[in-house]
Write a protein that binds this DNA or RNA. Sequence first.
RNA 1: CGGGGCGUGGCGCAGUCCGGUAGCGCACCUGCUUUGGGAGCAGGGAGUCGGAGGUUCAAAUCCUCUCGCCCCGACCA
Length: 568
Amino acid sequence: MRWSKSYLPTYKEVPKDAEIPSHQLMLRAGMIRSLTSGVYSFLPLGYRVLHKIETIVREEMNRIGSQEVQMPVLHPGELYEETGRLKNFGELLFQLKDRRGRLFALGPTHEEVVTDIARAELKSYRQLPQTLYQILVKFRDEFRPRFGVMRAREFMMKDAYSFHASQESLQETYDSMAGAYHRILERFGLEAVQVEAESGAIGGDINHEFIVLANAGESVIFRCPSCGYAANDERAVSLGASTLEKESSGKMETVATPGQHTVEEVSGFFKVSPQRLVKTLLYKSGEKNIAALVPGDRELNEIKFAKAIGDPDARPMTPEEVTALTQAPVGFAGPVGLDGVHIVADELLNDYDGMIVGANQADAHTRGVKMGRDFTAAQVARISMVVEGDRCTNCDTGRLKLSRGVEIGHIFKLDVKYSKAMGATFLDKDGQEKAFIMGCYGFGVSRAVAATIEQHYDEKGIRWPKALSPFHVIVTPLNLSDAGTVSTMESIYTDLGVAGFDVLLDDRDLRPGPKFKDAELIGVPVRVTLGERNLKDGRCELYYRLEDRTDVVAITDVVAKVREYYAL
RNA sequence: CGGGGCGUGGCGCAGUCCGGUAGCGCACCUGCUUUGGGAGCAGGGAGUCGGAGGUUCAAAUCCUCUCGCCCCGACCA
């Protein structure tokens, strides 16, 4: 490609609406342009990367026997009524009506559609297992689109779906899909971690996320360095803090704590660690009042809490409801003497002797409170979030470490959730009609572009891993007024192209400075610099962006050198 | 949706408080010079100041409504 004839606009300045490095660099390098919030065009440079990602994903999917299909983007609303997801997906679903007023949705994912396909054709266990995948645009009306293509409302996803007659068969495909994801990420040159996760709107129980480690990522994961346990923050469990400061339960005592609402304020007031406090969080589940008790240094894990009480629709009480129940303003609730409230205590509180809690009166807390003696928990369950440094549940010796990252893939065992709801059945060996056991496997293709940049950039711009760079080589002639430079650049450009490399020829009539800056910004791993001072000796310079290394070579050796570099 | 910020040539911004008919840097076009790290000189093109309504002799500036974008929180590939 010749730069002078290409749509490759670059910006020197950082666009003001872009926050994270990948978004800034994608805009500056002319990879994407925003049409409206969360909706992007991929310009030639960005599209090339997207295409390389798709190609690798496709190769690895085909390799494990997954078959490529293309399902519709436009979905009839009834399909979602069958599985109850019209309500479940809620406002995340882009909905529209046809001219007759019939409801449609823009596909956010394709469990319903693929299950509809399968129920028509797959009738016998002899036809199983089957795995189908597609690489298709998806639509989700995100509450908050953010960070460019990282969280967009329209995005490219690879989604695969598998159908099985047995759990063993599902496990086999699940494992080979995880293996494919690892190979894909390795080929991309990304450092990623597979973690246990929660399933969200997709459903099912067993599921894993693939997290590309990056500071700008929105996902938080915990890992144990000694046994390898890894889970996202929603799923993670632990044995609690490595050191627990104990509060004596000798005598219960109510202390005036004027104006001290937050954990920080109260622990500061008592001059103790926040651990010794216990937060009382009040929820409404229908008409029922529920109190969640968690250690003062931890957040409530709402997913685990919802599971514990068996109500996904439980909501925090409004300040008015809190005041009506506790006779005190928000910030002073406690479990002692809370009548008519179902108390759910975090499992970690079993290790507590005494605790400091709200006194259910304004400006007062009670210390020395003992669970079982001073109040009774109706239920004990692990409902608090993990914090860094916690003892690992899996091995009890490691201390959990927190990392941030980008969720690039998510695989799920769906079991019969969709097949059962949609009556998708087959005849098994034993002559019984059974619902398909299913799995589904998502991979964020457009997100992968951004995630890759998050892991590969420097102050100069993007540093594309070899496999994903939009070009293998950029040829940079420094002086287009020099006839020798021009003829050399043409022959090198041709030779590299013939050798099978993607080559960008920077034939713009610019001075060297801006050309170098642009080449570094768009991140091509190899630059061939053609300057008169080397050309007169029949040589030119190779600059390796990833290694930050330069090499002066004979012009006749350029193709061989580039070939050698990419063969490594 | 709740909270905050911002909309002025392609990009980044000033001007808004205190009304007087739009400016700076970069980019772009033409010419000459220059050619190993975002060149110099000269000339030039480009903006209904997000939109609608209002106040006024006069509105980027004041008032009302509205649309959009970004950031912080609840979702997920």
